[in-house]
Design a protein around this nucleic acid. Sequence first.
RNA 1: GGGCCGCUAGCUCAGUGGUAGAGCACCUGCCUUUUAAGCAGAGGGUCGCAGGUUCGAUCCCUGCGCGGCCCA
Length: 500
Amino acid sequence: MSSNEEAQIAQRRANLDAIVALGFRAYPNRFATTHTVSALATAHGESDAAALEASRVETVTAGRVISIRHFGKAAFLVLSDGRSRIQVYVRQDSLPDRDYQLYRLLDFGDQVGVAGHLFRTKTHELSIWAARLEFLAKCFIPLPEKWHGLHDVEIRYRQRYLDLIVNPDVRRVFEIRSRAVTAIRDFLTSHDFLEVETPMMQPIAGGALARPFVTHHNALDMTLFLRIAPELYLKRLTVGGIERVFEINRNFRNEGISTQHNPEFTMLEFYWAYQDYQVLMRFTEELLSFVARAAVGAEQVPFGEHLIDLQAPYRRLSLRHAAAEEASTRLGVPVLVEELRSLDSARAIAARLGIDVPDAAGPGRVATAIFETLWEDQLIQPTFIYDFPTEVSPLSKQREDDPDTVERFELYIGGFEVANAFSELNDPAEQRRRFESQIAERAKGDAEAHAMDEDYIRALEYGMPPAGGEGIGIDRLVMILSNSPSIRDVILFPLMRPRD
RNA sequence: GGGCCGCUAGCUCAGUGGUAGAGCACCUGCCUUUUAAGCAGAGGGUCGCAGGUUCGAUCCCUGCGCGGCCCA
């Protein structure tokens, strides 16, 4: 007993055999077109019937057949080039017999070439009056239904090509992504930043607090880590005199998967000598409004229930002040900023709020946990959270007036972190102390604590200029710009478990 | 790692302790301006996988797999 799908595949193979028997090649090497479907739709989408008749536009184009409506000895095909669609009118008395026989053997999903002239049907649909058909490739496997499309997210992610064929909005998301990345490059290069590429495989996984993926180089017999951040390499370049530098590339973090986390994700990092985090806040506002205009044509973008406004200025909240203020509201008693700076009182406040913190956490980690738990969900409109505890920021420079606090901010949009930036720590002695403190954290069980990097300290010993640096999560930014609720909607091939 | 939910035809989904349904798609026939074309007819199923309970399980129970959402 053969299944329905097997029968459909057999039918389609038989159709291909018949097409070959007509003299067509099964897999021709090329097809010379004069226009893409999108070009035709753009150029003539507004032309009326009389104008098309007067100009008699002849065209040769190609695409995938995504609909066939038969009418006896005529038919309407819909051809897609992945972006736009155009109707093709096929009739027996307008085609060579061989081409008409070909049309009768076409299946939903086949790749075809068409030559003919443009016209409008009675119902004003822009169409090609086919004078010639060429066969380009067979679709053997039945495609998902035209009306309901493909909803099963598992198949959409595993077989993204199917998703792209049948769900036109998916293409739109990745066009936004492409325009956003291009806009970031344009913005930074126009501000004299140099784009570079630094190692993806690193002997020490530094520049962030995260667990790395581990691999091995056979010839050198050495352990290598897929990078969790490019930070330490980019800052070495500022030592080398590249005063404005950026990289857009993949990071890898060996952590859980969620609507906001994919094990590999794309990050922009840039470093700007002689600037500090205050300058970067203003620069970020400029950058993001520029990117929004370029990617979606507006600074206001819908995101779920919200309309997010990426126009400057963004709200600014000091981390400890915001945490203390919200804790006061929740607990109904005053909570002072100073209480978040001492371990005992900070732990007591966290406990009263029902927030669990690791045993090894110092007051900085506790204050940060309180802040994230109380505030993260409400930070829908762009908000800079600034002045982080030094304890959680091993690569950031301290405030001149407060060694427990670093000049650092995170930008939240849509309820999650999109950017992280700081005035860069360039004092090699202080950097060594921070690394040593991280190693102590690791000894206490923090698997994400930063490792020692002697070569990085040596680079600082040559003198790194004061600088501001920032990382922006491209995937998360694109989620906001494209109104996508999951990071998997903005990554073409998100990581999935093997199915078999 | 924990909790909840899902997995039925190629796709989108109903459904029931008594051997399974719709729409679209596919096949046959009719149709030379349709657009979710129309009309008539036919076919298509390991109900995620494996056990258990039962006279009988797609349905109830247990485990596993894959996915989704939430939490850590």
